[in-house]
Amino acid sequence: MIENIVGRYLHIELNGHRQRVYFEEAGQGIPLLCLHTAGSDGRQFRAILNDPDITAHFRCVTFDMPWHGKSSPPAGWQNSEYKLTTDAYTGMVMAIAAALGLDRPVVMGCSIGGRIVLDLAAEHGAKLRGVIGLQSSAYTDSYYDLEWLHRPDVNGEVCGGIVSGLMAPQSPEHERWETLWHYMQSGPGVFRGDLNFYAVDGDMRGKLAKIDTSVCPVWMLTGNYDYSATLEASRATAAAIAGAELTIMEQLGHFPMSENPERFKRFLRPVLEKVRARG
């Protein structure tokens, strides 16, 4: 069996660096751009890109951010410290969407991706068909010392260990452990660098009032086992965006699309139906 997912490389300048960005896509129709979590890569959306009911109506695209997955860091990375910022992240998503010819895409992101879609909706809402925030919150306080994620004397296994409990215990074991494998494959300092956006730079609370959901609808799906982007944080975020729709997903955690794809799609399908109805 050969999957319908096709992977290619995009050469593009992002934030002053030439980058070779790996992306995968499947399907035709409304562009659905999927953004992976911190310290992982686009493999998290495998089940979405492989779902014929979704790809019949959506051109599903996911890319590995530079430093992640099959997108290498820029030349000279050995002399720099990776730290993701709001401006760099938003600029990257919009630049890649344009380079791939995605016309008013729906952007669906998880965790840091669920955070940045709030910025995208606030700053570029008219260029988007809507955003879907998975495990989305406008702000998350740090509850452990992030330095443990980037030390030569601590193996990258710690990245998997940190996030393992964020998944629902009911999710299939093999899906949970594949999700953790992606984390353990992360390059040195990459997870911590992404969390610079999540826990330091990317506080979106001041921007939520700018979002006009009549122009760019906001749908939020939050799994109840997530103690990083908590239910309380998602509820507070949704409450601060007039017209935002929040659905709580029981027995799912921080990685709904990869920890239990079949259960997640039960919650995603009604949202995608709304996207299609809006045209």
Binding site: Y144, G165, P169, Y227
Partner: peptide, 16 residues
């Protein structure tokens, strides 16, 4: 055996 959210993991206990 079926811990509720927020009590399922050591880091969840740290978080809370």
């Amino acid at each position: 055996p079926d811990p509720v959210p927020g009590r399922n993991d050591l880091m969840a206990l740290v978080r809370h």
